[in-house]
């Protein structure tokens, strides 16, 4: 899946003629790629556009601009594949395990609903549901006829995963799928996801604010800040050699298991700026310890900086020797 210049601004104020006066710039011209078979982790603090990105990929909200290509086919538009066809290949697991199940439907019906909508007959669809319930670790004899309010949070999220898999997708978007669960249940669900990924040959886009979870499950990580991608790269590169000041701050904010490596000073302070009126230039500069004039004048792009590891891209002027940033330095080993 390739995403190019995806943008969504939510209008909050319009004038009498319906022209937008101000808008929340939830996702602003982001481009990235999801490689078949990988798990792409998307991380960032609340309100940085992670969930909007997920919903844009699923076309639950229409993007203002940008092109999403799945398997070589453009999604939407006059010549692209329809949204209905997209849903055969791409599915999503929602964050709120309770709200994402119909409270008036037995869970087996919720799982079978997808195949039914795509024209499978009732018996075959129910067979799919029963098999999936088994696979996500819920005994169908006990659970098939239960209602969502009779299940625990972890069990509900298992049902949601089963529901997402019922249409045999190739790509699954997991939007904070484990964030609302207990740590022990979270681990179970993560292991289940890894097993299912192997079994069904899936690709995951895994969205979370939890750096430990992202590190555990991802092959590549994409760091978002205020609707922009600030850094993307392989998980080992990002965690071992973070380049962007924001990524560094995020990682420094992770609680350490080693009491000798106690964090003495807060690595990042303040709130992110208002996305209605983001600062011009680099959006992180208001909280960045290295901010310089160039950061205000020009928005850094992912392609400016020189990559260290394979596909490790950073949107920061400090990574670009030509940018004129006083602390700009040439990159490390590979350049």
């Amino acid at each position: 899946m390739t995403v190019a210049d995806l943008r969504k601004h939510f209008p909050i104020k319009r004038n009498l003629l319906g022209r937008t006066l101000s808008a929340v710039q939830a996702v602003d011209d982001i481009s990235f790629q999801v490689i078949k078979g990988e798990t792409l982790g998307i991380v960032g603090e609340s309100g940085c556009g992670k969930s909007t990105t997920a919903r844009l990929l699923m076309r639950l909200i229409e993007p203002d601009a940008g092109v999403v290509t799945f398997d070589g086919n453009t999604v939407g538009g006059a010549h692209g594949v329809g949204v209905r066809d997209l849903y055969r290949d791409v599915q999503m697991v929602f964050q709120d395990s309770y709200a994402s199940l119909n409270p008036r439907m037995p869970i087996s019906m919720s799982i079978a609903y997808g195949p039914l909508s795509q024209g499978m007959n009732r018996k075959a669809a129910m067979a799919v549901a029963v098999k999936l319930l088994e696979q996500v670790g819920l005994n169908p004899v006990l659970y098939a006829n239960r209602y969502p309010h009779e299940l625990s949070g972890g069990q509900k999220q298992r049902v949601n995963i089963a529901r997402a898999l019922a249409l045999r997708p190739r790509l699954v978007i997991l939007d904070e799928a484990v964030s609302a669960l207990d740590k022990s249940i979270e681990a179970q669900i993560l292991n289940l996801l890894i097993d299912l990924k192997q079994e069904y040959d899936l690709t995951y886009v895994f969205i979370s604010h939890d750096l430990n979870v992202i590190r555990f499950i991802s092959d590549r990580v994409m760091v978002m800040y205020l609707g922009h991608i600030v850094e993307v790269g392989r998980v080992e590169d990002i965690y071992a050699r973070p380049e962007h000041p924001y990524t560094k701050a995020l990682l420094a904010a992770m609680p350490s298991m080693d009491p000798r490596k106690r964090t003495e000073t807060a690595p990042i302070t303040g709130d992110p700026p208002n996305p209605i009126d983001p600062p011009p230039g680099c959006r992180f500069r208001t909280r960045c310890p290295h901010a310089a004039q160039i950061c205000e004048d020009r928005t850094p792009s992912l392609n400016d900086g020189a990559a260290t590891g394979e596909g490790h891209l950073v949107a920061c002027h400090m990574r670009d020797r030509r940018s004129g940033h006083p602390e700009a330095r040439s990159s490390g080993a590979s350049q």
Binding site: M92, S100, N102, Y113
Partner: peptide, 26 residues
């Protein structure tokens, strides 16, 4: 506005079906 309606949309169901099976009975 609950997620299960969005979830039903992602299964490619028609608006009529979502209306009857997911919205009306709730």
């Amino acid at each position: 506005s609950l997620d299960f309606v969005d979830a039903a949309r992602t299964s490619g169901a028609s608006s009529a079906s979502i209306m009857c099976r997911h919205v009306l009975n709730n």
